[in-house]
Design a protein around this nucleic acid. Structure first.
Lengths: 221, 221
DNA sequence: GTTTGTGAAGGATTTCACAGCA
DNA sequence: TGCTGTGAAATCCTTCACAAAC
């Protein structure tokens, strides 16, 4: 199974983490992000109090979150910025390259290919797929566009771990089905739908319209 | 509690909603989205069971969520798709136009201006701002680009409700400060930072990298 | 003096389960 | 019969508060 450094307990530096709540896992990348910023400014140590101020959350929550994974701080001093950053990156699996395949090379898909934020974080776009024969075979941002029918073989061939869906809403479900069928276990979904996938497949949505639509509730004074 | 005596106004069709949890508000746009899809397919009625299947959540949660705002269903029949959609849109304040101002007209900002998903949902981009003098004064996607120093007067002049931040990380905090200073109460933040804003200002982030970075935790087998 | 790590308490959210209505 | 609406129970998550460590 998964985490199998199940030596005995109590004094482990890194603790078995099968029981870290999912909300906590979602916050870890936030911590990684501010730690990187702190590191750039030259800070050596940081307290949960300072992190809490930066992130607008309580120091207790930060300490509790970190405590699910290990004991990374020193009483009276706080956390070593570089060390904590490195530990969290290791926990999240960020110390390696992850290959992503993009489905949908329209306007949105091209913007995603051009987005410079993925590669420095280790996410490499290694393939692109589209159903439009006039796009298939061309190269977009240095990536060859293949037909959607070749998803399965390409995922195997190139070792793709993550599917990125940028097709129109009506096509999103069948694209997700194809990705799941090819063995993909993580999907980043830009389409404005909630695709149905097996329990073991993680889907995270990126939808600015949803974000706006919940803020208007509070604006509506 | 009080279900025996009808001492006070517990029979309102639309109930006072000051106490709806924020997580519930965040889910309402999801309901609106599937209801719109159901409506297109011609469905008249829908049960919480069916909605739950679509959204991969429990029927009980959907019923409970809706119950914070009113009693929209009919026992034995479910919810009228058009009616429920309309009620939720009204609760969220989606039956009107909201004006947005974009800060940062670089690659990302241009993609946001070109994104066709906002306008059909009532979100109108009415202004754009940048600090680069070679961009200020030009027109991008039909929107005139103004200097950042003019945010405050433009927000007042054009009635801007929402700020959209698409500047590089190091500039995001000062841009958010300027938006807050101009009276903006809702910010959609594309920059990879957690800006600090007063409690009464809502910020929602759009960051595909954060989404990927939490999924790798689960991939990391 | 400072700040962590963590049981325990408190609060929030989800699920259960069923009365009541169509 | 089928399904909602909702108190109550169960679960999940956050905050408290303090002993221990530096």
């Amino acid at each position: 199974m998964a985490n199998s450094y199940t030596t005995d307990r109590s004094d482990d530096e890194i603790r078995s983490n099968t029981d870290a709540p999912e909300v906590v896992v979602h916050r870890l990348p936030l911590y990684v992000r501010v730690l990187a910023q702190l590191d750039v400014t030259g800070a050596e140590m940081v307290s949960s109090e300072q992190l809490g101020t930066q992130l607008q959350m309580t120091p207790a929550q930060i300490r509790k979150d970190l405590s699910y994974f290990g004991r990374f701080g020193k009483q009276g001093r706080g956390y070593n910025v570089k060390r904590l950053s490195q530990e969290l990156r290791s926990i999240l699996g960020l110390n390696r390259q992850w290959n992503a395949g993009l489905v949908g090379v329209g306007r949105l898909g091209r913007a995603i290919i051009a987005y410079p934020g993925f590669r420095p974080e280790g996410f490499h776009m290694v393939a692109a797929f589209d159903e439009d024969p006039s796009v298939v075979g061309s190269s977009v941002g240095g990536i060859d566009v293949r037909p959607i029918a070749q998803i399965k073989e390409t995922v195997a061939e190139l070792g793709i771990h993550i599917g990125i869906v940028a097709v129109p809403a009506p096509n999103a479900q069948s694209v997700c089905d194809a990705l799941v069928e090819s063995g993909i276990k993580a999907i980043l979904n830009y389409a404005p739908v909630a695709p149905q996938v097996p329990l073991e497949v993680k889907v995270r949505g990126v939808d600015p319209v949803l974000a706006l639509q919940s803020m208007t509730y509070f604006l509506k004074s």
